[in-house]
Computed example of a mutant assay.
Amino acid sequence: MRKYFYALIALLSLATVALATNSQIWGEMRIQNILGYGQEESLKLGAWFTLLQSKYFAWVFLGVLIGVPTVFFLHYKIIGQKVFPHSHNKHYAFNLFHRTVHQIAAVSFLVIIPTGFIIVFGDFFGGGTLVRMAKNLHGIFTIPFAIVIIPMALMWIKEAIFNLEDIKWFMILGGYLSKEKRIINATQFNAGQKMWYWVCILGGLVMILSGAMMFFMDFKIEMLHNLTGLSHIDMLRASAIIHNVMGFILVAVFFTHIYMAAVAIKGAIHSIITGYVEEEEVKFLHNAWYKKLKEKGKF
Rank of each mutant, 00 (worst) to 15 (best):
N95T: 01
L164Q: 06
G174T: 04
G175I: 02
I184N: 02
L177A: 10
C200I: 05
Y197P: 02
G192S: 00
G126Q: 11
S108T: 03
V101A: 09
H91P: 00
K168F: 09
Y176C: 04
G128E: 11
F145Y: 06
G126S: 13
I113C: 02
R132N: 12
P114R: 10
P114S: 07
V107F: 13
I104N: 15
M152Y: 10
T115D: 14
V206C: 05
K135E: 13
A146F: 07
D123P: 14
F219G: 15
F216A: 14
M195I: 01
V101L: 11
A186T: 01
V107N: 12
I221N: 15
F109V: 05
I161E: 05
G174N: 03
F170Q: 03
V101Y: 09
L164V: 01
K181S: 03
G204D: 00
L177C: 10
V101E: 06
I161N: 05
F97A: 14
M133W: 14
K194E: 07
R99V: 05
E180N: 03
H102A: 02
L137K: 08
K220E: 12
F145T: 00
L202I: 02
G174E: 00
I143Q: 15
G211V: 04
F117C: 04
Y176L: 06
N89W: 08
L164H: 08
I184V: 01
S178C: 05
M213W: 08
L154D: 09
W156M: 04
M171D: 11
K181P: 02
F162G: 02
G122C: 15
M214D: 09
F124G: 14
G128C: 12
M213D: 11
E222V: 14
F97E: 07
R182K: 03
A146W: 03
K168P: 15
G211H: 02
I201E: 00
L96S: 14
I157M: 10
W198V: 03
K179S: 02
M214K: 08
K158D: 09
M217E: 12
F117A: 05
V131I: 09
M223I: 15
M171Y: 09
F109M: 06
I172D: 12
Y176G: 09
T228H: 10
R99E: 01
L227H: 12
I150S: 12
N89K: 07
I167S: 13
S178A: 11
S210E: 09
A160M: 10
F109E: 07
M152C: 00
P151K: 09
I143C: 13
M207E: 07
V101D: 03
M217D: 15
A153E: 05
K194I: 04
L164K: 11
F117P: 08
I167Q: 10
H138K: 01
G116S: 04
K135Y: 15
W196Y: 05
I150K: 13
K90A: 10
M195F: 01
W169T: 07
L173K: 06
F162A: 04
M152L: 11
M207Y: 09
E180T: 10
V148D: 06
G175R: 01
K90P: 02
K90R: 03
H98E: 00
L130F: 13
S108R: 14
K220I: 15
L177F: 05
F124D: 15
R99Y: 04
D123S: 15
G174P: 11
G122M: 14
M217V: 11
